[in-house]
Amino acid sequence: MDLPVLWFAIVAAFFVGYFVLDGFDFGVGMALPFLGRDDTDRRVMINTIGPVWDLNETWVIVAGACLFAAFPEWYATMFSGYYLILLLILAALIARGVSFEFRHQQKHLEWKRRFDLMIIVGSALPAFLWGVAFGNVVRGIPMDAGHNYTGTVFDLFNPFALLTGVATLLVFFTHGVVFIALKTEGEIRVRARRLATRAGVLTIVVAAAFLVTMALERATPTSLVLSVVAALALVLAVLCTVWGREGRAFTLMAVTIAAVVLAMFTAVFPDVMPATNDPANSLTVANASSGTYTLTVMSWVALVFVPLVLAYQAWTYWVFRKRVTRAHVTAAAH
């Protein structure tokens, strides 16, 4: 495997990590109005991701940094063409992070409602817009010979990209609700399991439409196999939720997201950004990558630090592995 292909795989792996981990954060935030019957319920839900949400978000920073260093042409085209989408994602992530830290600073309900709304919007908007962005990676965008995006922002909201956005939003929502069921006890756990089952049925329908459309839009044998894996994992995740196996359901949801992301990357390979107007203008792994020296240095750095990051994240999840209950939240408030 040559270095550009290796770093294409590494970038894909970082995005898999981001969408699996921050995906359930988005789902928890979006579930606030559906499961949070009172402030204590909402605090329980937020506390399920409280120790890890900021750590989960760092995966997208690392993914963006790797994209910038390993594939500067890809980074430049994507960030200039997707400028408004990425700006909205950034603003939403900032609003969500601020809300997690500030909602408990005042006891007034109106104060908390406003920050809860910011959490909901700050979770739903990125969940949808990330799907729109990656839908356009699969579909391709119009580019000139200099790899500059030649379309408008409205062209990015095409039917396939919108379908991808709805699919990612629903998958993340279901992923988050399953996580709530996994991390809580009592009535909220029962309600989360019920909501995950209902949302899961809708998610299966939309995800099936997306996977079929993606296969018709652009596909390789590997992406087709991964799409089948994603579909089976999603169905099994919903069934495990019905059976009360939240741990298995959560694992299967993670497999679903990972398989879908990898299917999207392998569907375009060896392109990284296909050009819809002229295939000669497409960005590929070869013409978008940095030089051999840069990729070699990055490879040695990744070999040292990626295992450390994974070990630290695993340790964090182990430390905060226990379920969150209303009694714990109430006791902490006093």
Rank of each mutant, 00 (worst) to 15 (best):
M1Q: 14
L3H: 05
P4V: 05
V5G: 02
L6E: 11
W7I: 02
F8I: 04
V11I: 15
F15N: 11
Y18A: 10
F19I: 14
D22A: 10
D25Q: 10
V28M: 02
L32T: 05
F34D: 07
F34M: 15
D39A: 13
D39K: 09
R43I: 04
V44F: 02
N47G: 03
N47D: 14
T48R: 03
V52M: 11
W53V: 03
E57S: 06
E57L: 12
I61M: 14
G64V: 09
G64F: 07
C66W: 11
L67K: 05
F68M: 13
A69Q: 04
F71W: 10
F71H: 01
E73C: 00
Y75C: 09
M78F: 13
F79K: 00
Y82M: 15
Y83T: 08
Y83M: 12
Y83V: 08
L86H: 09
A95F: 14
R96W: 09
G97A: 15
F102Q: 14
R103M: 12
Q106H: 15
K107F: 06
K107Y: 09
D116N: 15
G122H: 07
G122E: 07
L125M: 13
L129W: 03
G131E: 06
A133I: 04
V138E: 01
G140E: 05
G140A: 08
I141D: 02
I141F: 03
D144C: 06
A145V: 13
F154T: 15
D155V: 07
F160C: 08
A161G: 09
L162D: 10
G165W: 00
L169T: 10
L170E: 05
F172G: 11
F173C: 06
H175A: 04
G176M: 02
V177H: 03
F179M: 09
E185I: 04
I188N: 00
R193G: 14
T197W: 01
I204C: 12
A208P: 03
R218F: 06
P221M: 09
S223G: 05
L224Q: 13
S227V: 09
V228R: 10
V238T: 14
C240T: 04
G244A: 08
R245W: 12
L252Y: 12
L252V: 09
M253K: 05
V260W: 10
V261D: 01
V261P: 03
L262Y: 10
A263I: 07
T266C: 06
V268Y: 00
F269R: 01
F269A: 04
V272E: 04
M273T: 12
T276K: 02
T276W: 04
N277E: 06
D278Q: 04
D278S: 07
P279F: 07
P279S: 06
A280I: 08
A280K: 13
V285I: 10
V285L: 00
N287R: 03
T292W: 08
T294R: 12
L295P: 03
L295K: 00
V301A: 15
F305T: 14
P307D: 05
P307Q: 09
L308S: 04
Y312Q: 12
W315T: 11
W318V: 11
W318G: 13
F320H: 04
F320P: 00
V324M: 00
R326G: 00
R326L: 01
V329L: 02
A331H: 03
